[in-house]
């Protein structure tokens, strides 16, 4: 069982990474990665929603009949998103001002739904919770990575405004790496999102090839 859990964690973080392997959740992966901080925050919110909804679906998996599983899954994801939205607005307002617009978009992110259908609907709660959580963490890593590259090239900074998100203690990680006039604005605009995401997918696959791993294509094997 412990071995299974290890596979789940590794799948989520690297082998079957939601963005870089399965190419799911592209809308937030492009829209929210204009800076590393934004990507990180969006990833965290998505991870919370995924962990909670995977756990719930796994608990009720024997009660949800085949015919109505999709509406029930969407209902559960939407409810979790609304909970996160309300809680963030009330208790993490600074973060909400940055991310608020994009929280509702988690509902339309196909990654949570894909994991519910492919994993949580058939697996026990603990494994499903881990799958949701680590798929979410893998998503966070991917978004933070894309955001970091775009921010460094496009704006010359790294983790700008991180203190707004994480608290004043994190002002130290707000870096300026390039002078302001040396930045390439396009990387922050939509084309930069496509370029950086594509290049990072290439990098991941090259690392996998070097390690002698078979490349997992588009998650087609795991998403029914």
């Amino acid at each position: 069982m412990a071995n299974d859990y290890k596979t789940i964690v590794k799948d989520g973080l690297w082998d079957n990474n939601g963005v870089f392997s399965m190419l799911l959740g592209m809308c937030p992966a492009m829209a929210m990665t204009t800076s590393a901080t934004n990507g990180f925050g969006m990833g965290l919110a998505t991870a919370a929603v995924m962990a909670a909804s995977s756990l719930l679906v796994a608990i009720f998996r024997n009660r949800i009949t085949q015919e109505i599983r999709i509406p029930v899954f969407i209902l559960i994801v939407a409810a979790m998103v609304t909970l996160v939205d309300l809680a963030m607005n009330a208790w993490m307002h600074e973060l909400y001002k940055v991310l608020g617009l994009f929280i509702p978009l988690i509902v339309s992110n196909c990654l949570p739904l894909a994991r519910l259908e492919a994993f949580a609907a058939k697996q026990p709660p603990m494994a499903s919770f881990l799958d949701g959580l680590f798929m979410g963490v893998g998503f966070t890593i991917a978004l933070t990575g894309i955001g970091a590259v775009r921010e460094i090239i496009g704006n010359g900074t790294l983790f700008a405004d991180a203190s707004l998100l994480l608290g004043p203690a994190f002002r130290a990680i707000e870096l300026r790496l390039l002078p302001a006039n040396a930045s390439v604005l396009m990387m922050i605009l939509p084309p930069g999102g496509f370029l950086v995401t594509g290049l990072l997918v290439v990098v991941k696959r090259m690392i996998d090839l070097k390690a002698g791993k078979a490349i997992q294509m588009g998650g087609a094997h795991s998403v029914a």
Partner: peptide, 24 residues
Amino acid sequence: ILGVFCLGFGLILAVTDRLTVDDI
């Protein structure tokens, strides 16, 4: 089943709304 799920999550959301409305 669908009705029970809707009712259940509707209740949870209503409670959360109550808890957060003043802070928001």
